[in-house]
Design a protein around this nucleic acid. Sequence first.
DNA 1: GAGTTTGAAACT
DNA 2: CAGTTTCAAACTC
Length: 700
Amino acid sequence: MDNPQKKSSSQMETPTPKSKFEDSPVFNYINNLSPIEPVKSISTAQTFSSLSFTSPPPVFTSPHASFHRESRFFRCHYSADRSKALDSKEEVVASADVDLNKDATLEEEENEEEKASIEASCELPQVLKSDSQTPDRGDSPCAGDVVEEVLVDPSDTPRGDNASSSEDVKMSLQKVVDAREEDNTPGCGRLMADASELLVFRSPNDSEAFRCLVDKISSSERRFCAGVKSTKEQDISKDIPVNGSSDDNEPLAVLPNESVSHLHRGSMRRRCLDFEVPGKRKKDIADDQQTVCENKAESSSKCVVPGIGLHLNAIAMSLRDRKINVMHEYSTSEEIQMSLTGSTTPIHSQDTVLETLDQAESEPGEGQALEEAPNALVLFEQLNPSSLKKKRRMSEQAGEGESCKRCNCKKSKCLKLYCECFAAGVYCIEPCSCIDCFNKPIHEDTVLATRKQIESRNPLAFAPKVIRNSDSIMDASDDASKTPASARHKRGCNCKKSNCLKKYCECYQGGVGCSINCRCEGCKNAFGRKEDSLLAIMESKQEEDRQTYEKRTAKIQHNSDLSKEVEEQNPRSDQPSTPLPTYRHLVVHQPFLSKNRLPPTQFFLGAGSSSLRKPDNDLTQPRNEKKPLETVIEDKTETMPEILTSSPITTIKAISPNSKRVSPPQIGSSESGSILGKRSNGRKLILRSIPAFPSLNPNQ
DNA sequence: GAGTTTGAAACT
DNA sequence: CAGTTTCAAACTC
């Protein structure tokens, strides 16, 4: 803690380069906008890396799916806080230097206090425990641990008192900074950065903490952070520099405290905490607002949310469930916002984002994860509700006496998805009632290996089970988004007896309606029945079809008119005489598409070709159908102009899906009798005809 | 708190 | 891929 020398020595290298970045307004701006960037850049840029990198991939990367979502989310909050921070940024830096000494003296005291408070809380034990339990990692203690503690702190502190909580956070941050100063360990910086960002996101209240952290960091690494950090709170002490999370590539010093954890562990724990924290926070908030005095509840609240997947699922559910009530209980919108934006979720999201990012990069194939990410707000909702849910559950099950209960595994050793903690990507903690639990930092290797194994089996095993439709995805089917079931369960449920009206149903539990993917029987899901979703899809499909049809017809007519004009103007012997070639050409193109993707039957049935698409990833069939259809249609429309230009009108007519409308009697002359016949029916016919073409062409 | 029900996860 | 078993949460009493 006391050695500025160490830090200075270790940090010296980085500062100069960083300062450059920091100086650039663009860099700052980017940082403000997306916390992810800075962190990532750090990790990559870092030379220390090994540690920093190792941490992310591990077990608790599960949240990956939410990547986009979170990024967006962050942006929102971030921007808010950051804008403020930007203003004060310079001040902060300056102040940081000044405060550095001051903070150092106070840090130890604060640390002790924090520890005490943390220990008191349910989760805290876990963190500390993990540290103590896992001496093996002790080699590389890093700020990450501290960060975790910090995160825990907020949750621990009763929410009612924002100021107090923020103070705690601050304290913890300072602590982190101190530790960091002391620590030379490389790679920790990243964690720090994450933590700082997380904190920022966490809640407006925490901003103070941020500042503190920044101050310290800046003090220790002023050059480093100077440009980067940023967020300062408007109201509260502006002097405190907000830390640029990004900054901290520097090696972190080893933490003297027990709390100091190894790098890996730090990351692991941090994640765990992240998940939990949100829940805690929310719960705390709710408690505070509802009843200031519910101390017991606090403990339970601390225990909060188990896992991402569960979170997501449970969240929505909990929201709509009773938990919603809790939300409403927030006296002011501000509070809600705080809880949503600032408080816990952000942290999750942060981690999630990072993890997601990593995964996304590593796993290009997982579009789902990205798709899932869509709405930060949604994520919030999900996360918060889950926390609420958890809270409720804990309070109910555990009762007040028991702090927090989480999993209750007896045979799975908490190394299977049966375990809520494991599934959520978090370590089991004391509140868990599990037996022979291996889901602990001590068994990190085992946990990672198991997780890896499970992921190998199912890459999305740790992804959120409930997928919110992203805008992009939804675009085609806005209707779906409008429907109550804009979000869907990843795989759908398989309920037989619960009618999707109980939490046995994952869809219901996740607060989402059942979808095509569900194999449930007698679905009565309050959030949307499977049948409803089907109907909605059909309707949307029809609507789309109608629109596309209209568009097409209009286009076709327009094209036909043009072509006619062209013909009249330039009567060519070539093309007019040989409509077939062009025709074929077109045909080939279209047929190919249709052939590959759409079975003729589908076309017939699904008049609404494109509309079918369902927002959710799930609808395998609808999606497939839709895609092909869309492509076909587009191709047709797009190709039309070419055809027109190069070929006679007749060909165009024949080709056009709308041909029936265009209804050119002339075409009949050409070879494609079959085509014509098909054509007569309009779109469907055309599509159907498409497949035939390929075969014809070769022969001819 | 114990027992039952339920459906996901895991296994075959 | 389907059927069965295992598992732990959700639920009931």
